[in-house]
Amino acid sequence: MPGTASNPDLFHGFARREVTLRGATRTVYVAGEGPAVIVMHEMPGISPQVVRFARWVRDAGFAVYLPSLFGEDGAVPSAEAGAAVFQRACISAEFRALGGGVSSPVTAWLRELARLAQGERGGLGVGAIGMCFTGNFALGMMLEPAVLAPVLSQPSLPLNDPAGLEISPDELRAVRERLDRDGLTVRAYRFAGDRFCTAERFAAYQAALGERFEPRVLPDAAANLADVPPFFARHVPTPHSVVTVHLADGAGEPTRAAVDEIIAFFHQRLSAV
């Protein structure tokens, strides 16, 4: 379903496209030149903080593809409106919010987007980063050969199993085989005290992917908890969003260093030199 933008000025410099893949049409905001990076936004939608991160990736020399997956694009919703977006996503057939060992169907659409993006941009391959509700999608996207640089930022599904993984066993095995065969790795980020992306979940990733899983755990003290949006203030009581809402953007800040490390990872995997 195409997204709606409540703050069009936020997307200045981005081309808004309606992209139809696998019979489903979604709004995708595209900006920049260079190898493609798919940026998948967190709950409850494409926020100003998500767009800020996308601009950093664009400015580092990449073509950013920012698909609208849920919520009102560019909005800063009230706590109640954000909770309503969350509830709709949880019951949507496109997502598997509850119960581990299954993959969200929308991941197949995102793999097609990665294939399209590489066809348009060329280069060695495509990067992908998911956040929170979409955090694990970059792992499932590894079934598409174009995806070379997956980043999982606070992957939070399944919501009802702290040690669960939102991917089917067959797909997980196929991803591990590809990582080993192609010498690739998966980067992952979380805050130490995050209740939605737990230490148990990272341990499960480590058990499944071994040395191909590269976790980064930031101290809770590194989170910026001041002036967070209403949805986060009410419903996200712990440090959570590493590269967006809870990022402290300053020299020497661990969250800013995480952004720089992610961008360096994209350069390492996607650049020819």
Rank of each mutant, 00 (worst) to 15 (best):
T4P: 00
L10T: 11
H12E: 12
H12L: 06
A15I: 01
E18G: 12
L21A: 03
R26G: 01
G32M: 13
P35C: 02
P35N: 04
H41L: 01
E42F: 09
M43A: 14
P48R: 04
Q49L: 05
A54V: 07
W56F: 02
V57Y: 11
R58M: 00
L66Y: 13
S68D: 15
L69Q: 08
F70K: 01
E72G: 08
E80H: 10
E80C: 03
A83F: 09
F86E: 13
F86T: 10
C90N: 11
E94I: 08
E94M: 12
G99S: 01
G101A: 11
V102D: 09
A108Q: 09
L113Q: 06
Q118D: 04
R121Q: 10
G123W: 11
L124D: 10
V126Q: 10
G127K: 07
I129C: 06
G130D: 10
M131I: 13
G135S: 04
N136T: 14
F137V: 02
L139C: 14
G140M: 00
E144R: 00
E144H: 05
E144L: 01
V147F: 04
A149P: 13
S153N: 09
L159W: 08
L159G: 04
P162I: 02
A163P: 10
G164K: 01
L165I: 15
E166Y: 03
E166G: 08
I167T: 07
S168F: 05
P169S: 03
D170Q: 13
L172E: 14
R173L: 04
V175A: 11
R176A: 14
R176E: 12
R178S: 02
L179V: 09
G183V: 08
T185I: 08
A188H: 04
Y189L: 00
F191T: 00
F191M: 01
A192E: 15
D194P: 13
D194V: 08
R195H: 12
C197N: 14
C197G: 12
T198H: 07
A199G: 15
A199V: 11
E200L: 05
E200W: 13
R201P: 04
A204S: 15
A208K: 02
G210K: 02
E214G: 03
V217S: 09
L218S: 12
D220V: 08
D220M: 03
A222H: 10
N224G: 14
N224C: 05
P230M: 01
F231N: 02
F232W: 03
R234V: 10
H235S: 01
T244A: 10
G250K: 12
G250L: 07
A251I: 08
G252C: 06
G252D: 09
G252N: 08
E253N: 12
P254Q: 02
T255E: 11
A257V: 06
A258V: 02
A264K: 07
F265A: 00
R269P: 09
S271I: 03
A272K: 10
